[in-house]
């Protein structure tokens, strides 16, 4: 299970809408309970990809600062990025470029409807997590 509050989900949609048509991205912190993840912290990070309308890349120094900030009091949960035009699932590009197993990849899709999905990366494939709004 991947859990976040209604306010946090709204924050993700607002970030995605504000950044559209470019993809936005960031880091998620919180706590793990077994395999269940609960978000407490969301940190936006600049997208430094050369083609931000179709690609995202977290700015490395900001990514590191965000992770270190989160790990002072919480745990790294994972990373989010937006798909302004959908889909709400990992693309072939997401699969090809994923590098962090054991964290949650969150996709914030704005089309055809606003959707937040969460995915586990095992090094080869993404598998979907249930999302709970708490």
């Amino acid at each position: 299970m991947f859990s976040l509050s209604a306010d946090q989900r709204r924050w993700l949609f607002e970030r995605a809408e504000h950044g559209a048509p470019r993809e936005v991205c960031g880091v998620l912190g919180g706590y793990w309970s077994g395999n269940d993840a609960t978000v407490t912290t969301l940190i936006s990070v600049s997208n430094t990809a050369a083609e931000p309308r179709i690609r995202y890349e977290l700015e490395p120094q900001a990514q590191l600062r965000a992770i270190e900030s989160i790990e002072e009091q919480r745990e790294l949960i994972g990373f989010y990025h937006s798909h302004p035009c959908g889909p709400a699932e990992p693309s072939e590009t997401d699969k090809r470029l994923a590098t962090w197993p054991d964290v949650v990849y969150v996709i914030v899709s704005l089309e055809p409807t606003q959707t937040v999905t969460a995915w586990d990366w095992d090094g080869h494939e993404f598998s979907k997590r249930n999302v709970s709004i708490i």
């Binding site: 990514q63 990373f79 590009t93 470029l97």
Partner: peptide, 14 residues
């Protein structure tokens, strides 16, 4: 030295 795995991807092929 610190090595940081890059987090990147995208909705479409470039």
């Amino acid at each position: 030295v610190t090595i940081l795995r890059l987090i990147k991807g995208g909705s479409q092929r470039a």
